[in-house]
Simulated scan of single mutants.
Amino acid sequence: MNDLLAALLLGIIEGITEFLPISSTGHLLIAERWLGQRSDLFNIAIQAGAILAVVLIYWKRLWGMLVAFVGRDAPAAYDPLGVTATPAQSRTYALKLGLSFMVTAVLGLLVKAMGWELPDTVRPIAWALVIGAVWMVVAEHFAAKRAARDGECTEISWTTAILVGIAQVVAGVFPGTSRSAATIFVALLAGTTSRAAATEFAFVVGIPTMFAATAYELLSLVRHGGIGNEDWSALGVAFVASAVTAFVAVKWLLHYIQSNKFTAFAVYRVIVGIALLLWLPAAA
């Protein structure tokens, strides 16, 4: 296959799967079996493209938090769903994001220090997809029951912020889990029964988390001379494809969850997971 076409397809796969609760790492590991394995710099670039898309979507929310955090007066900020936030609310929200990120950073560095390496075989990805689907259905079921009993809760508690930080590390350790799925459904189980509020927090906390991980990996590559023989044309194509498709995917998801549950994603995960398990004798 033409190298630029393969890069385009990998960028599209990253953009679609990074923020949908279906696991980008799992899909990319599988796709690379047909499209060819890529360099670490390539994978960093397509992840950066997906992050850029979310920054563009949430830039007003992010700016409102920044202005509120430094203590300046500013008009209420709006998130992509049209919900307003006062400066005080934006400041508290930013602190909770910071707490969640710090939990992820500390635990992530511990995992790195332990020498943990991502598995690159199909079986753990397949099981993570299936188990994650069950987790999604259970979490949404209990969140719906709590919302029916107590009313819908859009608040992100400090406990929820800590648990989301832990969930990000768990998702990073087990490919196929999906960072977005782990964080969204931890938030739902922890008491934020609004799908929109849980999804927004999961996406926004992913910005510093993924930027930090990307910067860490990039600096490591620079230190060890791992960027010398890159195909920059293919990398550029993949970066743009990832950014554009991630922007469309996130916009679509934010609209979809206003009136739909995550059940369709759970069904998709089960189908893909079972298909991979059946395919294992040929793939392992």
Score class of each variant (00 low, 15 high):
residue 137 V to Q: 04
residue 54 V to K: 09
residue 187 A to P: 11
residue 18 E to V: 11
residue 13 I to Q: 05
residue 263 T to M: 09
residue 14 E to S: 00
residue 204 V to L: 04
residue 47 Q to E: 10
residue 117 E to Q: 14
residue 156 I to M: 13
residue 35 L to A: 02
residue 267 V to P: 04
residue 223 R to K: 10
residue 20 L to F: 00
residue 98 G to M: 15
residue 87 P to I: 02
residue 30 I to M: 13
residue 237 V to P: 01
residue 191 G to I: 09
residue 26 G to V: 10
residue 104 T to L: 13
residue 129 L to V: 02
residue 121 T to A: 11
residue 135 W to Q: 04
residue 154 T to R: 15
residue 155 E to Q: 07
residue 29 L to E: 07
residue 31 A to V: 09
residue 44 I to G: 01
residue 186 V to N: 11
residue 45 A to S: 13
residue 80 P to V: 07
residue 57 I to A: 06
residue 15 G to V: 08
residue 267 V to C: 00
residue 10 L to S: 13
residue 161 A to N: 11
residue 199 T to R: 04
residue 71 G to M: 00
residue 138 V to Q: 12
residue 227 I to C: 10
residue 115 G to T: 13
residue 211 F to P: 06
residue 80 P to F: 01
residue 223 R to C: 01
residue 18 E to F: 06
residue 281 P to T: 08
residue 133 A to W: 04
residue 70 V to W: 11
residue 201 F to L: 11
residue 157 S to A: 07
residue 7 A to F: 06
residue 1 M to A: 13
residue 199 T to K: 03
residue 159 T to G: 13
residue 99 L to D: 11
residue 6 A to F: 04
residue 147 A to I: 00
residue 48 A to N: 03
residue 32 E to F: 09
residue 3 D to P: 01
residue 74 A to K: 10
residue 67 V to A: 01
residue 197 A to F: 03
residue 213 A to L: 12
residue 210 M to E: 02
residue 70 V to I: 15
residue 166 I to D: 07
residue 158 W to P: 10
residue 54 V to P: 00
residue 134 V to S: 01
residue 4 L to D: 03
residue 194 S to H: 03
residue 156 I to C: 08
residue 136 M to K: 05
residue 266 A to E: 02
residue 152 E to H: 05
residue 87 P to C: 09
residue 4 L to H: 08
residue 170 V to Q: 09
residue 13 I to P: 07
residue 120 D to S: 10
residue 148 A to L: 12
residue 279 W to V: 01
residue 119 P to A: 14
residue 213 A to S: 15
residue 21 P to R: 02
residue 47 Q to I: 07
residue 200 E to L: 09
residue 113 A to L: 05
residue 247 F to G: 01
residue 189 L to T: 14
residue 247 F to K: 02
residue 174 F to R: 12
residue 122 V to G: 04
residue 215 A to K: 10
residue 115 G to C: 10
residue 131 I to R: 00
residue 19 F to V: 00
residue 218 L to E: 07
residue 63 W to M: 07
residue 218 L to M: 03
residue 116 W to Q: 08
residue 57 I to P: 11
residue 47 Q to K: 09
residue 195 R to P: 01
residue 1 M to F: 13
residue 240 V to T: 13
